[in-house]
Simulated scan of single mutants.
Amino acid sequence: MSEPLTVGAAAELLGVTTRTLHHWDAVGLVHPSDRTPAGYRLYTAADLVRAQRVTVYRELGVPLDEIGALLDAPTADALATLRRQHDDLRAKTRQLQRMTAAVERMIAARESGLLLSADDQVAIFGEDWQPTWVEQARDRWGDTPQWAQYAEHAAARSARDWQAITAATEALHADLGAAVRAGVRPGSPEADALAERHRVGIAAHFDCTHTMHVCLGRGYLTDPGYRAFYDAIAPGLTTWLSATIDANARAHGIDPDTATWPTPPHDPSQ
C-alpha cells in the first residue's frame, strides 16, 4: 500500500465497519496517523497492521480493553496475557462440550424416553418390564407437555437415579397393597398420606396437580393394563386407589367430579 486509506477504505480492507474504526480511535486503540487537507482521517500501512492485529485478538476473544496493552506490552507480558486467554478458551471449550453433551442427552431423551439400554431397563425395573412400553408411551404422549418434562428429568438421570426411583415406587406399591388388605378407608389420614406419596412419585417425572391426579386415577379404572397391574398387587387396589385419590383431592379443595386434564395453550400459528 503506497498511499494512506480513508476510514471507509480501511474498514473495507479490514472487514470491519467504519463505526468500529471510529470507536477504536476514540478508545485509543488504533489512531489514524494522517489527515487529508480537509481534516479527514487517513490510515497508514502501520496503522492498518496494528488494526489487523486488533481484529486477530478480538476474534480470539480477548476483551477490547486488554488488546491495547497486549499490543504495546513487552514480549514476556504479552505472552503471559496470551497464555491466560488460552486457559480461558480451554475452559470455555470444556463448558461448550458439557453443554453439547447435555443437549444431545436431551435430544435422546425426547426421542427415546429413557437413556438406558434394554438390558439395563429390565435389570432396574424388573423381569416383567417391557422396553417397548417406553416407545408406546412416547407414541401416545410424545406431543404433550408432560412428556417434555419427563424427557427433561430423564436426560439428567443415571442408572443409580432410576434404581432409587424404582425402589421408592416398589415400596409405595407394597404399602398400597398392605393398606387395601388392612381395610384402610379412603379419606382417612393414612390413605391421604399414601395418595400424596403416589402423587409425589408421579411428580418425579412431570408436574402432577391434585386435579391431574384425579384424572390419572380415573384412567386406572378404565385402562385394562393399569387395572391388571394394580389389582395384581392386591385385589381391588385399582378401585381403592382411585377412591383414595379422589378423597385426597377433596381434602385439598378439588371436586373430583369436575376434574379435567389441562389442555395445552393453543398455538395461533398452527
Rank of each mutant, 00 (worst) to 15 (best):
D25M: 03
R35L: 06
H153V: 14
Q52S: 15
D34K: 15
P74E: 12
A76R: 15
L14F: 11
G177D: 01
T100K: 11
A123R: 13
E59V: 05
E152L: 15
R140M: 06
A123G: 07
V200T: 10
W24A: 07
T132N: 04
A109D: 01
N248H: 15
S33V: 09
L14Q: 11
V103K: 05
W240Y: 07
P74G: 13
V134C: 10
Y230F: 15
A69T: 14
R250C: 03
G61F: 05
A251H: 14
T166C: 04
E111A: 15
V27G: 05
A108K: 13
L71G: 08
N248D: 12
R157N: 06
D119S: 11
V180S: 02
L241Y: 02
T81C: 07
A247S: 11
Q149T: 03
Y230K: 00
D246E: 13
H198T: 11
R41P: 03
H86W: 07
W162H: 15
R250I: 09
D231W: 03
R160C: 00
A228E: 10
P224I: 04
P186H: 03
E135P: 00
I165S: 11
S242E: 12
H153E: 08
A102S: 14
V214S: 03
T6C: 06
A109R: 04
A204Y: 02
Q97Y: 05
W24R: 01
A156N: 05
T75S: 12
R181C: 01
L89S: 11
A46I: 10
V122E: 00
V16T: 11
T209W: 02
S33F: 03
A123K: 12
V27A: 06
A247G: 06
V214C: 06
Q146C: 00
R98V: 04
D192H: 14
A168Y: 00
A45V: 15
A159F: 07
D128A: 14
A164L: 14
A232E: 11
R84K: 12
A174H: 10
T244K: 00
L60Y: 00
L5V: 03
A155Q: 07
T93A: 07
M99W: 06
G177S: 09
A51K: 08
T238D: 01
H31M: 11
A203I: 01
A108L: 07
P268N: 09
I202Q: 07
T17E: 08
E127Y: 04
R50D: 03
A46Y: 05
H198Y: 14
G8K: 12
D231G: 07
G219Y: 10
Q85G: 07
D255M: 09
A118K: 13
A164P: 00
P37K: 02
H86I: 02
Y220H: 14
Q85D: 01
H210I: 00
I245C: 01
Y57I: 01
T81K: 15
H213C: 09
P186G: 02
A123I: 08
V62D: 00
L237V: 05
H213Y: 05
D161W: 08
L13H: 11
Y57A: 10
L5K: 14
Q130D: 15
I165D: 10
V7A: 15
V56S: 09
I165T: 13
G8F: 06
G39I: 07
L42A: 04
G39Q: 06
I254T: 14
P262T: 08
H205W: 12
R157D: 09
A137M: 13
G236L: 04
V7D: 08
D231M: 03
E135T: 13
D231R: 03
R197V: 02
